[in-house]
Design a protein around this nucleic acid. Structure first.
Lengths: 250, 250
DNA sequence: CGCCGTGTTGACTATTCTCAACCCAGGTGG
DNA sequence: CCACCTGGGTTGAGAATAGTCAACACGGCG
C-alpha cells in the first residue's frame, strides 16, 4: 500500500520522486497501538511529530468530572502536533479507536525533511492550517447544528478525509467508533446518537454494516449536514503561491 | 498606554528594550473599525497580519441558512492570522464588537521582526499555539458544558485574557457584546442566554453594569464553568526551551 | 415625541437527556 | 459444546434543558 502521507499530499500537490522517497524513507520509531490505547496523555511531555500510518485515532479532553469531548479525528496520513512541541506538555490526549500504526519522527528528522524539500515544508504548513480550519468547523458544528445535522456533517468530513487517502471507495468506509464515542464527539448522549443515526438511515442517506458506513446519497448527506468541503482545502489552488518565507521560531 | 502586544508578551517572557521598541515601531497601516464592522470577510484574499490595538472583535462563520457561530474572541494584543496567509482566501470572517483599532502589518514587516528578534518569533509561535488551544477549549465548551457552565467558562476566559493586557481591574471588565451575540458564541438562544446570565447573577458569581461585567467570586466562577486557565498558557514555563529550530516553509 | 435596539418575561413547544430494560454477537471458561 | 458474560446497540417512558413566539420595558437618539 502506498505511504498514506505521500498519498494524501499527492492529492493537492505534485511531488517529485525524490520527495516521495524522502517521505517514505524518513526514519522514525514505529509504534503499534491497540484499540482504545492512548498515544499521548494530557500533561505528557511532548515528543516529536507523530504520523498515523494505519488505523484511526482522535484527540480528546476530559473534564474534572469525567465528561469527555473529542477534539478531532485523526486518520492515516495525518500528522499530530506538527508544532506542538513548542509547548512542553500536552494539553489534551490522543487515543486510538482502532489498532493503529504510528511513526514517531524525532524533531531533527522533520527539520531535515523540511529543510531539504521546501515543497514538503509547504505541505506541512497546509496540514496545520487544515487542522485549524477543522477545529473551527467543529465549533460551528457543536454550536449551531442540530443532532442529525451534526452527525451528517461528521460523516461527510470523515468520508472526504478517508477518500483522500484511498480508504473510502464506493461510498463505503470503516468507522471504528462506538456510539458512545460518537456521543462524546457530537456532544450528545449515546441514546440520542443511536436515534439520530436511525433518522439518517431512515432518510436513505446512509446505511450501516457493522462498523462500516455506506453513503447512499452524498449530496443529500452534505445538504443535511450543511456541509461544505471547502474547509478541508483539498485543492492546491487554495494555497498562496510559494513566494513567501517565514523565519523559523527560536 | 502601553502597546498591548508588548504588554501581553511581557507577561510571559522578558523582552529587552530593543525588542519592545521593535514591536512598538513596527510599521503597518492603521485601520479603524466601527462597532459591527467587518475587518475581513469570508472569501476575502488574505492580507498581512492584523494586530488588535484597541477594541474587541471576534471571528465567526455563518451557515447557508444564516445561523452564525463565533469562533473566538479577539482582544487587544491578539494577532489575527499569524499564518493564515498561507491560504489564499479567508474561510471565516472577523468583525468588531466595539470600535476597534487594528494595525495591519505587511508580511515583510513580520518576517523582518521575527528574523531579527528570535524571542519575538518564539512569542508569535506561542500566540499561535494558544489560539489553537483556545479553539479546542471552545469545542469542549460547546460539546460538554451546560448553559450556565458555558457562560461561566467564557467569562473566565475573557477575564483572564483582558487582565493580561491590563483591561480588567478589580474583577471588572467591559464586554461590548449583546446577548444575541453571546447566544451565537455559546450556541444558545438569546432568551436562554438572558436567563443563564440571571442564574449566574443570582448565584452571586457576577453582576452586570451596562456592558461591564463584575466578577465577584472568581474561584466560584471558575468552578461553575469547570474552567482551568492552563490552556491559555500564560506562563513562560509552558514553553519548551528555545533549543530547537524549525525551517521556514516555502 | 416616537422609534429602534436591547434586555426581560411568560407560556408553550421541541429537543435532548436519563434511566432502565432488553437484545444480540462474540469470546471465555467449565 | 454450551452456559455465561460482556460490550455495544436499541427501545420506551418520563424529566430536564433549551428553543420559539409574542409581548413589554427601558434608554438613547433623531
Amino acid at each position: 500500500m502506498e505511504h498514506p502521507l505521500v498519498r494524501k499530499l499527492s492529492n493537492f500537490t505534485r511531488l517529485s520522486n525524490d520527495e516521495k522517497d524522502a517521505l517514505r524513507n524518513a526514519s522514525g520509531r514505529i509504534r503499534l497501538l491497540a484499540a482504545r490505547e492512548d498515544l499521548i496523555k494530557e500533561d505528557d511531555p511532548t515528543e516529536g511529530v507523530n504520523l498515523i500510518l494505519e488505523g484511526f485515532a482522535c484527540r480528546y479532553k476530559v473534564l474534572r468530572d469525567g465528561r469527555r469531548q473529542m477534539l478531532s479525528y485523526i486518520v492515516p496520513g495525518d500528522m499530530c502536533d506538527a508544532r506542538v512541541f513548542v509547548l512542553k506538555r500536552m494539553d489534551h490526549s490522543i487515543s486510538a479507536f482502532a489498532p493503529t500504526r504510528v511513526v514517531i519522527y524525532p524533531r531533527e528528522a522533520i527539520l531535515e525533511l523540511t529543510y531539504e524539500f521546501p515543497r514538503i515544508a509547504r505541505a506541512f504548513w497546509w496540514n496545520t492550517l487544515v487542522e485549524e480550519a477543522t477545529a473551527r468547523e467543529w465549533i460551528v458544528n457543536l454550536g449551531q447544528r442540530t443532532a442529525p445535522e451534526r452527525a451528517a456533517h461528521l460523516l461527510c468530513e470523515v468520508y472526504y478525509r478517508l477518500r483522500a487517502v484511498d480508504m473510502a471507495s464506493g461510498g463505503r468506509f470503516g468507522l471504528p467508533v462506538t456510539q458512545a464515542e460518537l456521543a462524546d464527539t457530537l456532544g450528545l448522549s449515546t441514546v440520542h446518537v443511536n436515534r439520530t443515526l436511525q433518522t439518517l438511515r431512515a432518510e436513505g442517506l446512509i446505511s450501516q454494516d457493522g462498523r462500516d458506513v455506506i453513503v447512499h446519497d452524498l449530496p443529500g448527506l452534505e445538504k443535511r449536514g450543511l456541509f461544505d468541503a471547502n474547509y478541508l482545502h483539498l485543492r492546491d489552488e487554495d494555497l498562496s503561491p510559494p513566494d513567501w518565507r517565514e523565519r523559523e521560531p527560536v
